[in-house]
Nucleic acid binder design. Structure first.
Ligand SMILES: [Mn+2]
Ligand SMILES: [Mn+2]
Ligand SMILES: [Zn+2]
Ligand SMILES: [Zn+2]
Lengths: 134, 134
DNA sequence: TTAGTTTTAATAATCGTTATTATTTATGGA
DNA sequence: TCCATAAATAATAACGATTATTAAAACTAA
């Protein structure tokens, strides 16, 4: 079950890694179009799904928002801005947390967890401060 | 800023509390229709939003899924089944976790966090086991 | 070369949710 | 009580994100 690395997939993957951001499908579509103007948005969606299934990229399902895709496949959590929806990485030790929580979930066979810190990013804080002294 | 408790709101609230589950808008719509057959789905959506805004109920935005509404407004986290999307409550001490994570989010002004344990619920485990010995 | 498989672009369809609008219902004085 | 106006509703259209369909194109293996 090996994955054929088509031109489309190559460029999608390259642009995501290049960005070093947590991009949504349509943001990535805009970037990819620069190199492949005839690509379809559905192709981007389909291949992002395939690439994440194959472990080349991560898929982030932030609550109540668009999916975002992650250039970094190592296990880590995220913080996101409630105002502009920017997503940033978080580096905390997962092990301790994981095993501690598992115990309290009786009946379920636990496969993982998702931790989202919610807040306001530096840029949006600054913007809010400037608003106030209008 | 007081909220008028209309018949619609009363019944929506009552049925959610009665269920003691984490219902989606359309699941709740089905229950409410039994008592108020002419109610509109949009009314259910609108009032769930209003009721959660006013603190009568909780709103759960599980990653990549339909919103669910919570009869229990006290702070707690959730576990959900990756197969059937059932959501259950989790009782873990929030304090320790919260303050520990905050430190690693430099720049952001943190307003909260969301922890989702993902797994397979007892019912779905059983079903999978029966599948295997087909 | 050719037949079969996979992928693609284009586009339609779906799903959950929110917006619009005309009508109904509640409220608070004259 | 009557009226003005404000709020809420039912019905339905519109929306944004995503997935499904399909006919054509590109690839693969014999
Ligand atoms: Mn990341
Ligand atoms: Mn709950
Ligand atoms: Zn921000
Ligand atoms: Zn289940």
């Amino acid at each position: 079950m090996q994955l054929r690395m088509t031109n489309q997939r190559e460029i999608i993957l390259r642009e995501l890694k290049k960005s070093r951001q947590h991009l949504s499908a349509d943001e990535l579509y805009d970037k990819v179009k620069k190199y492949m103007p005839r690509i379809s948005l559905a192709t981007v969606y389909r291949n992002l799904e395939i690439l994440s299934e194959a472990g080349f990229i991560g898929k982030l399902e932030i609550s109540g928002r668009q999916k975002r895709f992650d250039y970094d496949v190592t296990e880590h959590d995220h913080v996101y801005c409630a105002v502009c929806h920017r997503v940033d990485n978080l580096n905390i030790e997962r092990q301790g947390l994981h095993t501690r929580e598992i115990k309290s979930v009786k009946g379920y066979s636990v496969t993982g967890y998702r931790l989202e810190i919610v807040g306001i990013c530096p840029a949006c804080q600054k913007k809010a401060k400037q608003e106030k002294k209008k």
